[in-house]
């Protein structure tokens, strides 16, 4: 399919713009920090995103296997799942890829180097990734609830254990 070739050709640009789009969902005072600070320990969110976006794209434009894509999406979504985003806000960046790619490929589309149908197919793939992202998001939120319970238990585990022992006797 012709579009894949073009997508790979623009991989750097797509990756860059997709990352920008993600970064721009944060307060503007922070966007610069997330984008510019290159030390992964001084800028964990930005650098995690930057690395993950590249990996996601490679898999998505390459073999696009769900089992490989999910852990990569997890890297981004796990962060966004605990920031004050609604689920739709947290995952909006996935769908943003459609418009972004359409803009990048505008010229090639106009010149007929690929067909509109190709683009539609690509958009379908993005939507599938969106669904996958939904699964990932839900898993992250579930694990948040699980760890709450685990923590509450272990905070008083010895007491509970002891209490049961006494009842058992």
């Amino acid at each position: 399919m012709a579009i894949e070739h073009h997508l790979k050709k623009h991989r750097e640009e797509i990756s860059q713009k997709w990352f920008d789009l993600l970064a721009c969902t944060y307060p503007q005072q922070t966007v610069r920090l997330f984008k510019k600070e290159s030390d992964p320990f001084a800028n964990p969110v930005g650098q995690t995103f930057k690395a993950a976006i590249g990996e996601i794209l490679d898999e998505f434009l390459g073999e696009n296997r769900a089992e490989a894509l999910a852990p990569l999406l997890d890297k981004v979504i796990r962060v966004r799942a605990v920031q004050s985003f609604s689920p739709s806000e947290a995952l909006g960046f996935i769908f943003g890829l459609k418009k972004l790619v359409e803009e990048i490929l505008e010229e090639e589309l106009a010149e007929g180097e690929m067909e509109m149908g190709d683009l539609r197919e690509f958009e379908g793939k993005v939507e599938a990734m969106g669904l996958l992202a939904f699964d990932v998001y839900t898993r992250c939120r579930e694990s948040l609830f699980e760890i709450k319970i685990t923590e509450m238990k272990s905070n008083t585990r010895r007491l509970l254990e002891r209490a049961q022992l006494i009842i058992g006797e």
């Binding site: 005072q29 922070t30 966007v31 610069r32």
Partner: peptide, 11 residues
């Protein structure tokens, strides 16, 4: 300049 262009500092 730093005060003007770094968004956090400007804020």
């Amino acid at each position: 300049i730093r005060r003007l262009i770094i968004p956090q500092v400007r804020y």
